[in-house]
Design a protein around this nucleic acid. Structure first.
Lengths: 197, 197
DNA sequence: GTCTATATGCGGATAGAC
DNA sequence: GTCTATCCGCATATAGAC
């Protein structure tokens, strides 16, 4: 006899990987069941439908997003602010290279969002939260007298857009020097607003 | 009796719109046939399979991309270079708002590319070409003595990434001042390299 | 409570009539 | 060039074994 929670986790895990690699449609419940070692209808004991499984996975992935985007260093100074920003990008690039599945899956939900209001609404929240994180990072620096409060909102949004698209392009066959692009973005955006005493 | 070319165009047109709105999987050949006013198997006279139809549409969309990305003004001067860049973004934003189907469809092909090498290879070429366009724009300005040849490759790629992601985010429910972000990107990237005599 | 066996219906695909 | 008939596979649903 199997353990209920264990089986559930295995289904989620198999779904996560196969959906990311092959896409929702190209992944049959049969193949997920096979990976887990159960029969296809057994999945229906855990999920009302394939769409429910996809939705559950989305909720899990949404949680993870928060932990990813909500990390920012405690101490920002004139000396280390660029390094802080550099590090944010470098970490994301490394994670993306190491774990492409996450974003591959996430991109599928973004596509779903143009066809399904449920995903559209939830993703809008996530993305808004993502922009907010960058903005609060800027405000944090402003509060500490590290940078001037000049166009901070737009600048933070600009960096967020660059950051996001770098992680997207890593998934493609286009090889660019993404770290250099990120550093250039940070340099360009901060040039002129970092206070040099 | 129907006209062959006319029917083909109608199938492509219906596919274009429905695929963009509902996605490849959620669009059945039956619904396309209904829109055109023919029966489902009739589509198989024009396309070997649904995948073939999707691929044909891709080739058509690929053509259009070239015409979109390969426009750049003939005369760049110190006085108008920022305006030129601003205009590129403004045009793209306007087009995107007016015609969201194009990018919605295109994004689906990007997703396919992580599952299918055919699309991966062709998209890599398109995206490479897209970066090249931005770079040659920079080189053009360098050649005319408008900007310094400082980090031009990375800067051009940075602008290309911003440009691309702005058009993506317009499709979402996230409303930002995209024109302002684009102008900020242009200002940030060009600040320091525009030659002031 | 956990799963298997089995049934239904839809969408993609093919053969062949007109 | 288009249609009818038909096949096959998969998502889905339910009945019931243990």
């Amino acid at each position: 006899m199997r353990n209920k929670e264990e089986t559930l986790r295995q289904i989620m895990q198999a779904a996560y990987e196969t959906f990311a690699e092959k896409g929702f449609h190209q992944t049959s419940l049969t193949s997920i069941a096979q990976q887990v070692g159960i029969s296809k209808p057994a999945i229906y004991y855990y999920f009302k439908s394939k769409d429910e499984l996809i939705k559950s996975l989305f909720e899990e992935v949404s949680q993870e997003i928060h932990t990813i985007t909500s990390v920012y260093p405690a101490d920002i100074s004139r000396e280390n602010i660029k390094q802080c920003f550099y590090a944010i990008g470098e970490n994301a690039i490394k994670r993306q290279v190491k774990e492409p599945h996450f974003n591959q899956l996430f991109n599928q939900y973004i596509l779903l969002s143009s066809q399904d209001t449920y995903y559209a609404e939830h993703l809008a929240t996530i993305q808004q939260n993502y922009f907010d994180t960058f903005y609060s990072f800027f405000q944090h620096a402003v509060d500490r007298g590290v940078i001037k409060d000049e166009n901070a909102l737009i600048k933070s949004q600009l960096l967020a857009l660059v950051f996001d698209n770098i992680t997207n392009f890593i998934l493609t066959n286009v090889t660019l020097d993404y770290e250099a692009i990120w550093r250039e973005a940070v340099d360009s955006v901060l040039s002129g607003i970092v206070i040099h005493e």
